[in-house]
């Protein structure tokens, strides 16, 4: 028996993210990356199936966000940490690395997912490039899905 089955609210959140074309990711209670959708994969340059679940320091090292000096932003400074710890939505703007290898600014909103258990079981993070052209592509769903 698998002892690590995700709580239903996370299963349903993943199903939702699979069905939307807004770049989004799902993190667990401890900030670990549980899933990101195809739209996010298109921006990040790698489909989720290629990377799988990752520890917080692992995914922030790979994808950012990054400070101006190139170092990854500590996870404590990300909106998802506020969402998980305080159980409230949080928002911020950051620099991440896109599939083109260049750094782009994104806006990210994190929403805690609170189910039947104690506190948030995870958070959903929705993000948008604030670079005009990329933003237009994403919001009109015209970005290519990386496969």
């Amino acid at each position: 028996m698998s002892g690590s089955q995700k709580p239903l609210e996370l299963i349903l959140a993943r199903n939702l993210l699979t069905s939307v074309t807004t770049p989004s990711l799902l993190v667990g209670r401890g900030g670990q990356l549980l899933f990101y959708n195809e739209a996010a994969g298109a921006l990040l340059g790698r489909p989720f199936e290629d990377v799988g679940q990752m520890a917080p320091d692992e995914w922030t090292r790979a994808f950012g966000p990054f400070e101006d000096d190139g170092s990854p932003t500590p996870i404590e400074d990300l909106p998802l940490t506020d969402a998980l710890r305080e159980g409230r939505p949080a928002h911020g703007e950051f620099r991440i690395r896109f599939s083109d290898g260049a750094y782009h600014r994104i806006a990210a909103s994190a929403m805690p997912i609170v189910g039947g258990g104690d506190g948030a079981s995870g958070a959903m993070v929705i993000f948008w490039p604030v670079d005009d052209e990329k933003a237009r592509e994403v919001t009109t769903g015209r970005h290519e899905v990386v496969r």
Binding site: S2, G3, Q5, I11, L12, R14, N15, T18
Partner: peptide, 20 residues
């Protein structure tokens, strides 16, 4: 619903642990 049952890892399947 919104999930490819044949392909998902068990941890992402509703009811998996109950029915295992």
């Amino acid at each position: 619903l919104g999930a490819a049952l044949g392909e998902l890892d068990p941890e992402w399947i509703s009811g998996f642990n109950l029915a295992c």
